[in-house]
């Protein structure tokens, strides 16, 4: 289980995360929703070890997460960053294989690659193409595929539906459920609050760097405040 306690993160003098506490239990999908600039990505990059917290603790199974990003990855906490961040100068296949950088089981890598190609057949077709030439949706699949190749214990997904058409968005959310069914733990940041809350076991609402609400996905879906602010539901003022 991943546990974040009283996390404070700054960009210079900008206080981006304020006393954030979050728990991600094993095998669950936990989501954090929030508007632009709420601090979702900041949280993700801090968990991944790229940004440093000023104070607070991040523990994984009781032990604090290592300080450098590559050690966090080695511990099985894998971030699929916002805007995909594929290596445009590498082929699709090379991008996916980069996810297996730390693995030393060629057989397992081959098997996982086959599994990923069965999950995203289009990536198999495009495997020798440069990643920069993929469409946005295909790039998102490749980015998730790269994350999966690391055999994540916890997969951190930062806005996987960003810029995708409704069809691709459903596709991505279906994939997330499939990944969960394989036993992975997922921590998901989304602006597409409706879809995220629907699949989430637990959810947090982040507002200007602070956790303002938390509960099960269903609870938050039913919460009038959440409906108004994030789901576009209008409640009549009496």
């Amino acid at each position: 289980m991943l546990k974040v306690e009283n996390l404070n993160v700054y960009y210079g003098r900008i206080h981006a995360l304020k006393n954030v506490s979050i728990e991600v239990p094993k095998g669950q999908i936990v989501t954090v929703v929030g508007a632009n600039g709420a601090g979702k990505s900041t949280l993700m990059w801090t968990l991944a070890g790229v940004l440093k917290a000023k104070s607070g603790t991040i523990t994984y199974n009781g032990k604090s997460l290592p300080a450098s990003a590559h050690d966090v990855a080695a511990a099985g906490v894998i971030l699929v960053p916002e805007r995909r961040r594929l290596y445009a100068n590498l082929t699709v296949r090379e991008n996916i294989i980069m996810g297996a950088f730390l693995r030393k089981d060629p057989e397992g890598i081959k098997k996982d690659l086959e599994f990923i190609y069965s999950l995203f057949p289009i990536l198999k077709e495009r495997s020798n193409q440069y990643a920069g030439t993929l469409s946005g949706g295909e790039q998102q699949m490749a980015a998730i595929a790269r994350g999966l190749m690391s055999r994540p214990k916890i997969l951190l997904l930062d806005e996987p539906s960003l810029g995708l058409s409704p069809l691709y968005t459903s596709e991505v959310f279906k994939t997330i459920l499939q990944i969960k069914a394989q036993g992975a733990t997922i921590f998901l940041a989304e602006q597409n609050a409706h879809k995220a809350l629907e699949i989430a076991d637990r959810a947090y609402v982040l507002e200007t760097g602070r956790v303002v609400l938390s509960g099960s996905g269903k609870e938050l879906l039913a919460n009038p405040k959440v409906q108004e602010a994030y789901l576009g539901v209008r409640h009549k003022a009496i």
């Binding site: 991944a48 450098s68 990003a69 990855a73 971030l79 590498l90 980069m98 996810g99």
Partner: peptide
């Protein structure tokens, strides 16, 4: 090679390469 591919990857995006477990 793996390291060679990582070098090309890092030349494009060093931060993401470290997310993939590459010790920069």
């Amino acid at each position: 090679t793996k390291m060679g591919t990582a070098i090309r990857a890092a030349s494009y995006d060093m931060t993401v390469a470290s997310l993939n477990g590459v010790n920069m």
